[in-house]
Design a protein around this nucleic acid. Structure first.
Length: 750
DNA sequence: TAATATTACCTTTTT
DNA sequence: GGTAATATTA
């Protein structure tokens, strides 16, 4: 994980300085030299709206970065007129790096960042017009949920009937649609929506009081400021004469409106996207934005990039075949000249354990026989829960792996606590951060005392911090609580005074020690606490790295701490998907977008799992199919899709039919297989329901089977005992061992 | 106030 | 099956 200062470290290399942009024709030629026809067309398009429809693996980042370089080289754009927007920090970093390798230090004057980062940056300058200070806090989803819960409590909403998450989702949807609280309330139909309207209103008020914005606010407030203040709008329009957007298919309404305000309908807006890879509809992304770009932006020019530089023809044909079942496409057909390649392997397994064993076995073979390196292999699944069984088996096979996603570093309680302390120093109005740390570590300031503080704050119209600074004035507070609160606020004040403007790492270290936070963890003497301490140490490391980078850069008007928080609050370890060369990668299909691997496994291809039943209920079959499309097109050479006949879900075991996406694969591209005889017979002969666990096990191994164990090597099954135990005699040392068939890293030798 | 027992819940999640 | 948020009790 790394958090770079806002202006990144792309030092001007001597080479780049020696070859200034004005080099002219020569330079332009070089830029275009290794591009194909459509790419070149996209890169050299002049003024006006441009839509680049870029299929998977068609070199869209290349087109985008070269276009930026071309605009500079031809003198059409100055670096500071360029705004290049991505969705992830990782994509932003990559783009910045690639642009900088093309144009050198000029890239430092451009804004290359995510939507949210760009908005945050703009709002730090303009937010005062909306009643915020430039030091506002950015709340992540968990923070904003805390805030909302408090609002719901205050409104005495029954959170059993109306779960806060559901309310938050509604508010988030509304914000993505740019519907403000008042409008929402006016148009509310039914009691739930009226309650949401009320909650929304209160939430907005409290957020403003806390000088805080959630992720959705960053977009919506930016739109507000541009809509309300013509001078601001004019200023940024003139400033950003060239706007380029990556992954346009994932934009929501607020982002669309933002671009409209910034570019007008005939501005120099370049968007790149692929409607077939729109997989974030559930978060408000609107495919219509890309489908109707040419209507929204006058006379937009369209370029299609259809040559794929990644996958074999078989993989692409499979992807094309699946996605062709969707309607409402702009129509693209990927092709490649990488040759036919291997067929798609479709495997039917007994249950999730057999599936995991199968995958592990195939991976082992790829590495041992195929000579493939582990970092070229990935396993995708629909939901995070599916990684567990697989992880168990991989451990038993002694296959090193990494899981992307799941519990994130910055979402860990201890990390959030530490950051909340810092946040509170910068923005004392930040109520959520205050509540987070006031009693963490335990200071004997529980719910009742906190309630009294909050009450007093509400009645006197002050922030909770202002009230906490003089706790004597709060009615009902116990003497012990008063003392404790004073000690807390004094600590914060002290630290602030002592470390103002200094290195963030020093402040963080002092804070963790002096607050007693580390001591409390040390006192726990548990493995979890150990882990937490390590995480905090890592955070200090992140801060130290940030400080060091900042030193080099010398940069910016902001205080180091403010800058650090700005960076960290928009950074997730999503951005940290760096490739670990010695590990197989496991992740959800959503996380797979934008990545590629030589060998890909998509597991859990069953109706109800993938496509997910809830998605189907909501009528999102097409989005699920796009997810399949994304998954398939990640594979360069080899692709496996597996399904299990029964799978443990929630409490019990459920039978699952093969995913519709499997039947959408053209038969001639598919090679069906399974580890077990039984598996090959498939569903047509499959009888009714799941076999009993016993049958299940006896299916796996029989006396006389040749097997391979991950650590003991080759052997033969000499007995099958009840309870899933089998006896195996190993060739290496002749010993017999009793093993659990379901859990041992065993597979049948071929 | 804090620690422990119980119970409801449960996709995906770029920021 | 595992978590996370209540309910209960010390």
């Amino acid at each position: 994980m790394k958090v770079a200062p806002e202006v990144p470290a792309e030092e001007v290399s001597g080479e780049a300085q020696g070859a200034p942009i004005e080099a002219g024709a020569d330079q332009v030629e070089r830029l275009l030299a290794d591009l194909n026809g459509p790419q070149r067309e996209a890169v050299t398009f002049g003024e006006g709206p441009l839509l680049i429809l870029a299929g998977a693996g068609s070199g869209k980042t290349r087109a985008l970065t070269h276009r930026i370089a071309w605009l500079l080289a031809t003198g059409l754009a100055h670096p500071n007129q360029i705004l290049a927007i991505t969705f992830t920090n990782k994509a932003a970093d990559e783009m910045r790096e690639r642009v900088s390798s093309l144009v050198g230090g000029a890239s430092r004057r451009m804004w290359v960042m995510t939507f949210h980062a760009a908005c945050a940056r703009l709002l730090r300058i303009e937010a005062e017009r909306l009643g915020y200070t430039p030091r506002f806090t950015i709340y992540d989803e968990a923070d904003s949920l805390r805030m909302l819960k408090r609002c719901l409590d205050e409104l005495e909403v029954d959170t059993k009937r109306y779960p806060p998450r559901a309310v938050r989702a509604r508010i988030s949807d509304a914000k993505n649609q740019l519907i403000d609280a008042e409008t929402y309330q006016e148009t509310a139909g039914g009691p739930f929506e009226e309650m949401v309207g009320q909650a929304y209103r209160l939430y907005e008020r409290r957020m403003l009081e806390a000088n805080s914005m959630d992720f959705d606010d960053l977009l919506m407030r930016t739109v507000n400021v541009l809509e309300l203040f013509e001078d601001v709008r004019r200023r940024y329009r003139e400033r950003f004469r060239w706007v380029l957007v990556d992954e346009y298919q994932d934009t929501n309404h607020a982002q669309y409106r933002l671009l409209q305000l910034l570019c007008g309908e005939d501005g120099n807006l370049t968007v790149v996207g692929d409607e077939d890879q729109s997989i974030y509809g559930f978060r408000g992304a609107e495919v219509r934005n890309i489908l109707e770009f040419t209507i929204d932006f006058k006379d937009a020019h369209v370029v299609k990039l259809e040559q794929n530089y990644r996958s074999t023809e078989t993989v692409l044909e499979a992807a094309n075949a699946v996605i062709s079942h969707n309607t409402g496409r702009l129509g693209k057909n990927l092709w490649s000249d990488h040759g036919e390649g291997e067929k798609i392997h479709v495997a039917e397994l007994e249950d999730e354990h057999a599936e995991a064993r199968f995958v592990a076995g195939e991976i082992e073979e790829l590495i041992d026989q195929g000579g493939m390196s582990r970092d070229e292999i990935a396993v995708f699944y629909r939901t995070n829960a599916h990684s567990r069984v697989l992880e168990d088996i991989l451990v038993r096979y002694e296959l090193p792996y990494q899981v992307i996603g799941g519990t994130k570093f910055y979402e860990r309680a201890e990390i959030k606590d530490a950051i909340a302390y810092l946040q509170l120093m910068v923005n004392p109005a930040d109520e959520v951060s205050f509540s987070r740390v006031i009693n963490s570590p335990r200071r004997g300031i529980g719910d009742t005392s906190q309630g009294r503080l909050r009450n007093h704050a509400n009645t006197t119209g002050r922030t909770i911090w202002e009230v906490a600074v003089e706790p004597e004035a709060v009615p009902g507070l116990a003497a012990a609580a008063i003392k404790s609160i004073s000690r807390f606020t004094e600590l914060i004040e002290e630290l602030r005074a002592e470390f103002e403007g200094g290195p963030v790492a020093d402040l963080l270290k002092a804070l963790l020690e002096r607050s007693g936070y580390l001591d409390a963890l040390r006192a726990e003497r548990t493995i979890e606490a150990e882990g937490r301490i390590e995480n905090l140490e890592e955070l200090v490391g992140v801060a130290a790295e940030f400080d060091a980078n900042r030193e080099v850069e010398g940069s910016s008007e902001l205080e180091p701490l403010e800058e650090f928080l700005q960076a960290i609050s928009l950074y997730t370890d999503q951005d940290d998907l760096k490739r670990d060369e010695s590990k197989v990668t496991l992740m959800t299909l959503h996380n797979a977008k934008g990545l590629e691997y030589d060998a890909v496994f998509i597991i859990g291809c069953e109706e109800g799992v993938f496509p997910h039943s809830r998605s189907l209920e909501e009528g999102n079959e097409e989005e699920e199919r796009r997810l399949a499309y994304v998954g398939i097109t990640r594979a360069r050479k080899r692709l496996w899709m597996t399904h299990a006949r029964s799978r443990r879900m929630f409490a019990g075991r459920e039978t699952g039919f093969p995913s519709r996406f499997l039947s959408e694969l053209p038969e001639e591209l598919v090679d069906r297989e399974g580890t077990e005889e039984q598996a090959l017979t498939g569903w047509s002969l499959g009888g009714n329901g799941a076999p009993s666990p016993k049958a299940d096990l006896s299916l796996s191994f029989a006396t006389g089977d040749d097997v391979t164990h991950a650590s003991f090597g080759d052997g033969v099954v000499t007995a099958v005992e009840p309870g899933g135990v089998i006896v195996v005699r190993f060739a290496s040392d002749g010993t017999e061992r009793k093993l659990m068939a379901d859990y041992a890293p065993l597979r049948k030798a071929s």
